[in-house]
């Protein structure tokens, strides 16, 4: 059986400057892969390439063994959804932001679904709050719910706690650990936080200067 998500020689360059260089990854269904490495190592760019927000200059990405360039990009991104580093919510209520993906795709959201999702991200009773009134941690949880509403097969998380204070960071880490334990989702998490690696990762890939410098189980790879 092919891996859920795999890359071969994945590369990305801007004006000849190689930001990601020949990265090979294979993530099995239900697995949580963590990508670690210093700032500027190309971690976030790999995530953007995995959901084709940027176009690889070289190499391939496949989903269930199919080259992802054969899939319609919005369909690919509905299956491989990303939670960006900054929540980037729209003005309006939490509910409007959670359902924005299906709404703009012309799909309906079943009654009670928003409440279920908000309960999963520990935001019970927040549906009608304005996003402008949320704390950083709350906004990030809404961003997670906005991606989860699509039922993605693969969840890409780009340093979801990077912009949060220590208390909110612990909160989100706990939430992610519970969420991932309770689901069958395949996850690729970018972080440079060792605690997140220890708590969440099945396997770790370390990037340096756009290349894979180490890979293995969390205890084998030091973030």
């Amino acid at each position: 059986m092919p891996p859920k998500l795999a890359t071969e020689g994945l590369s990305f360059a801007v004006d000849g400057d190689r930001i990601v260089d020949g990265v090979d990854l294979a993530v099995s269904a239900g697995e949580t892969l963590t990508i670690v490495g210093p700032s500027g190592a190309g971690k976030s760019t790999v995530l953007r390439l995995l959901c084709r927000l940027d176009e690889p200059t070289d190499g391939t990405v496949s989903l269930d063994g199919t080259d992802y360039r054969r899939l319609d990009p919005p369909e690919l991104r509905a299956r491989v959804g990303m939670v960006p580093q900054a929540p980037a919510l729209r003005d309006g209520t939490v509910r409007e932001n959670v359902v924005i993906g299906p709404r703009l795709r012309g799909e309906t959201v079943e009654p009670g679904r928003v409440e279920d999702l908000l309960a999963r991200v520990d935001l019970d009773g927040y549906a009608d709050r304005e996003t402008a009134d949320l704390s950083g941690g709350e906004a990030q949880r809404v961003a997670i719910a906005r991606t989860l509403v699509m039922n993605p097969e693969v969840l890409l998380l780009d340093e979801p706690t990077a912009s949060l204070d220590p208390a909110a960071r612990t909160e989100i880490e706990g939430l992610l650990a519970d969420l991932l334990a309770a689901s069958e989702m395949t996850v690729v998490l970018v972080t440079h936080d060792q605690a997140q690696v220890d708590r969440i990762a099945d396997r770790v890939v370390r990037l340096a200067d756009g290349e894979v410098s180490d890979r293995g189980h969390p205890e084998e790879v030091i973030a």
Binding site: G81, A88, G101, L104, L156
Partner: peptide
């Protein structure tokens, strides 16, 4: 830009993301 890309990243078609 960040908001538009966040919408693209959950499968929103480009026309709807910038409408």
């Amino acid at each position: 830009r960040a908001e538009i890309e966040a919408l693209l990243a959950v499968g929103v078609p480009p026309r709807a993301a910038v409408s």
